[in-house]
Amino acid sequence: MKPGPGTYRVGGKVYASVLGLLSPQASSVEVIPLSGRYVPKAGDLVVGTVTDAQTTFWLLDIGAPRWAPLHMTGTPWKVDIGETGRYLTVGDAVLVRVESLEATGRIGVTMLGEGLGKLDGGTIVRISPARVPRLVGKKGSMIDTISRHTGAKVAIGQNGRIWVGGSPEAIQRVSEVLRLIEENGPRSGLTTHIENYLRATQPADRPYAGPSDREIAGPGGFASPDEDARDEPPAPPSERL
């Protein structure tokens, strides 16, 4: 038996190195961690906050072990050297993609790509990175439900940082839902539970708009409600469901 991720071998025996769930594979054994910081993967969409602006790059806190440098050439802007602070300053929120991982632990990120960029306004809620698949749901069902019921704009980072924009009430409701997901992540029936919660707390002056046919980006993608859906009659259930 070969030691897989989350394990180590001493004297022919394999031991767990992290707290987690045992997952026997065909020729190896691995332990899936139940906790821990975000482990970046190339291609991940992440929400970060700017922690430092250098002359040619910014440093982003994406919840990983290291701060991730975002070089000025990795942005849609034409940034002059030394002028980085005019575009992003410490505390700004951004949606970026993990581009490269180096053996030194350096995490390269880029802001070039559809939907990537600075996140204006809103707030960032942190959940465990392990809960992100739960928040997205099957083919985006969970996040779809949440944004439809609340009218909030939500950007999901694979790092467990969730940016929420919209009215203060919408942000408040999404934050509460995120807390429920965080606490009940591994339980079954979560989407139904969340939907019931959202229905029960739907404000009278902003009735539920019903499902819409809008596009949703893939897991971790941008999800925002169709602004016009409110004024239209509820659309028929889409093929996605």
Binding site: G6, Y8, Y15, S35
Partner: peptide, 10 residues
């Protein structure tokens, strides 16, 4: 440390 998911011998 275990709760933080840090890999350790034991």
């Amino acid at each position: 440390l275990a709760d933080a998911g840090i890999p350790m011998v034991d």
